[in-house]
Nucleic acid binder design. Structure first.
Length: 468
RNA sequence: UCCCCAGUAGCUCAGUUGGCAGAGCAGGUGGCUGUUAACCACCGUGUCGCUGGUUCGAGUCCGGCCUGGGGAGCCA
């Protein structure tokens, strides 16, 4: 039986490329079945390769028609072999006239939770093992995949080296945020010495955590390869319960030697526009779906971003502008304070109506590694603000001057010994360099219009939730 | 972590001044149809989140807890 051993063709390929007359085998999951008393059934088959289903015509002549085909329900997995034919009805270019349909796995409709109707995203979150089979999560998954690939393509085309920075780290990178402790010490009987936890018997012989950023290690490789980037998981043990935070998320962090903040910002803008363009081109059907069911203005917004020039202005000017706006903000606007979400949104959504690149922030509200400006008050940092979503990129030129960095570390009360290798990069062959971090899941959110970040990652980890 | 809202059938929700628990969808059966969120008729469905309390009587009122959502903080 050649048809049982032949390779399957993906539904995407059939719908786009297959000509009538072609013999193909398809495998997938039943979305719905409709029977015609004309003596045949329509089986809508989806295999995840695209949003659209393939309509399979199963005739009563098939040996298992009454015994099996008529009992197919949403969720069952089948393989169908047959001939691609032009569809006589509107709705699809071609369909498959089945010569054999093999049922691989049943899905009891009494207990199978995915129905042939719209489910709430909250409910689907509780069945994360089944939600990939829905239109929404199929589309999210394809966009996420295409975006990942585009990130590698962008940097690869520009000669960047992809660096695998460690997940487990002994350095508290930025002193920012709570970290997840990594240990093999017995928690029911923690060894102590002089009242403190004795880490000498721990796996690494010292306290270790999951990384909150690959930046510091990326800097090491930037000082050898010039242009590098990391793209991997990042962990924050913050007790954040919002639609924009995950305890485990993915971050892209390019780091470039011989690069200042202006060049850094240019790369970031070009990068974002490239990624969005790629999605517009390669995930057209999925974006149409999001535009219709998730966010009505999605396509207009994405096209706007691609064609608009990002607006750059210093933090100091932004503060003046916010004060002069006369807007009744809930939080005070004052030089030296962090901008709040409402301030950022006003800038990106109301005032400029475009992505905004804020630069030169007060040094008191930024981490130690950012390069100090000559004014003595600010650092060479940038935040890129997107409408709706807020900060999507944070970056800076790094402090490359040994003495200035030492001062800053003291100012931030950091222990020099913990960063001896970071200091040596400034001691031997130091060079100006810059980089930024992009929250990958937030970008997927922005590109799909999905409101909750837990719905753009396969298995979200948030406080009190590590299911699946 | 703070503020606000919600939790009732498999799913989405309604439930009046406290008085016998409801609808749509899904599912089952039958009909109809080159159908495409198919359509028509009939049928079943409950620890009203958990736990105390008030009351003759609580889905409904009060307290505590749990879970989910929106917003904020922190950030990506």
């Amino acid at each position: 039986m050649r048809r049982l051993t032949m390779n399957r063709t993906r539904i995407h390929d059939i719908l786009i490329n297959s000509q009538p007359g072609a013999k193909v085998k398809v495998c997938g999951w039943v979305r719905t079945r409709r029977d015609s008393k004309g003596g045949f059934s329509f089986i809508e088959l989806n295999d995840g390769s695209c949003l659209k289903n393939l309509q399979v015509i199963a005739d009563q002549q098939l040996s298992n028609y009454t015994a099996e085909i008529l009992k197919l329900t949403t969720g069952a997995s089948v393989c169908a072999y047959g001939e691609v034919v032009e569809s006589p009805a509107s709705g699809q270019r071609v369909e498959l006239r089945a010569e054999a349909v093999e049922v691989l796995g049943w899905a009891d409709p009494e207990s199978y939770l995915l129905q042939k109707k719209r489910h709430s995203l909250e409910f689907l979150r509780t069945i994360a093992h089944l939600r990939p089979r829905t239109n929404t999560f199929g589309a999210v998954t394809r966009v996420r995949n295409t975006l990942s690939y585009a990130i590698h393509t962008f940097f690869h085309d520009r000669g960047f080296q992809y660096i695998h920075t460690p997940i487990i780290t002994a350095s508290d990178c930025e002193g920012a945020g709570e970290m997840f402790r990594v240990t093999t010490l017995p928690l029911e009987n923690i060894p102590r010495l002089d009242g403190k936890v004795d880490f000498s018997g721990d796996f690494f012989g010292k306290p270790t955590n999951l990384t909150v950023s690959g930046q510091l290690e990326a800097e090491i490789y930037a000082m050898a390869f010039g242009d590098v980037y990391t793209f991997g998981p990042t962990f924050r043990a913050e007790n954040s319960n919002t639609s924009r935070h995950l305890a485990e998320f993915w971050m892209v962090e390019p780091e470039m030697a011989f690069c200042d903040l202006q060049q850094d910002a240019s790369v970031a803008e070009e990068f974002l526009k490239y990624l969005i363009s790629e999605i517009l081109e390669k995930c057209h059907d999925d974006l149409l779906f999001f535009n219709e069911f998730i966010e009505k203005n999605l396509l207009a917004t994405l096209n706007h971003i691609v064609s608009s020039k990002f607006k750059m202005l210093p933090y100091t000017d932004a503060v003046d502008l916010l004060i002069k706006s006369g807007r009744p903000f809930d939080y005070p606007v004052e030089w030296g304070l962090n901008l709040q979400a409402e301030h950022e949104r006003y800038l990106a959504e109301d005032y400029f109506k475009a992505p905004v690149i804020l630069i030169d922030f007060p040094r008191s509200i930024k981490p130690f590694y950012m390069r100090c400006n000559d004014d003595g008050k600010t650092v060479t940092a940038m935040d890129i603000l997107f409408p709706e979503i807020g900060e999507i990129i944070g970056g800076s030129q790094r402090e490359e001057r040994y003495d200035v960095l030492l001062e800053r570390m003291d100012e931030c009360r950091l222990n020099r010994d913990d960063y001896w290798w970071y200091m040596e990069l400034r001691k031997y062959g130091s060079a100006p360099h810059a980089g930024f971090g992009l929250g990958f899941d937030r970008l997927v959110q922005f590109v799909t219009g999905m409101k909750n970040i837990r719905d753009v990652i396969p298995f979200p980890r948030t406080p009190q939730n590590a299911e699946f």
